[in-house]
Amino acid sequence: MLEGKFDEASLLKKVIDAMKDSVKLCNFNCTENGISVQAIDDSRVLLISLLIEAGSFEDYRCDRNIVLGLEMESLNKIIKNGNASDMLTLVAEDSPDALNLIFEDKRRDRIAEYSLKLMDIDQDFLKIEDMKFDAVVNMPSAEFAKICRDMKTLSESLQIIITKDSVKFNSEGDFGSGSVVIKSFTDLEKTEESVRITLEKPINLTFGAKYLNDIIKSTPLASQVTIKLCDKQPALFEYQLPSGYLRFYLAPKFED
């Protein structure tokens, strides 16, 4: 049996909000260590890897491994009915045909209970070896989100160029072009505002702006985003959860 109680529904609300526009169907794998998901978008360009460790829950138990096949849009409809500050408990039997979600108001005696039908989902599972990266950028997630949104107004591609101590986001469109350069920066008082660039080899990669604009839906989850890049390889965008992560692997674009 699975029983996982979040102190606040807001964490799962944000996670589902970040995923629902990229993937429609997901298997949520529940083990004693927590809940994990690997899901790939229909175009096979973006892969989502989610880990909500048991430590993210107020209380967590899962006696046997359980797979919850969930339709994200339906899950999102139910999740939106709960308040962000509600306690949220996920409950499933050992061989479940439904996931129960219980929202409890902390101040009043209000309990809302929902049941979501499960689905059998046959999904490709990709084997992601330990990847080596030539560059790692840590930056404020809100700043990254603004850059992705701004650059998408110009072109459907976004080029990321990293040299020693700066990252250049470059967009070449039909009616014009634009770029934003950010440099390494340490804010000792507000560390979440800092930009850190760790570079082994310079990087010049191009990505689909559409996918980046799906990834930045994770911005409310974490004040910083970590971007890991390697020449001619998929990039990794990571948002840390209190205990766990939401990662996106994005395949690059290449010259025709």
Binding site: R44, K127, A251, K253, E255
Partner: peptide, 14 residues
């Protein structure tokens, strides 16, 4: 503006 690559060409299926 460039050819979109596919994740299946980088990662194998399990």
């Amino acid at each position: 503006s460039g050819q979109q690559s596919n994740l299946l060409s980088f990662f194998g299926k399990k």
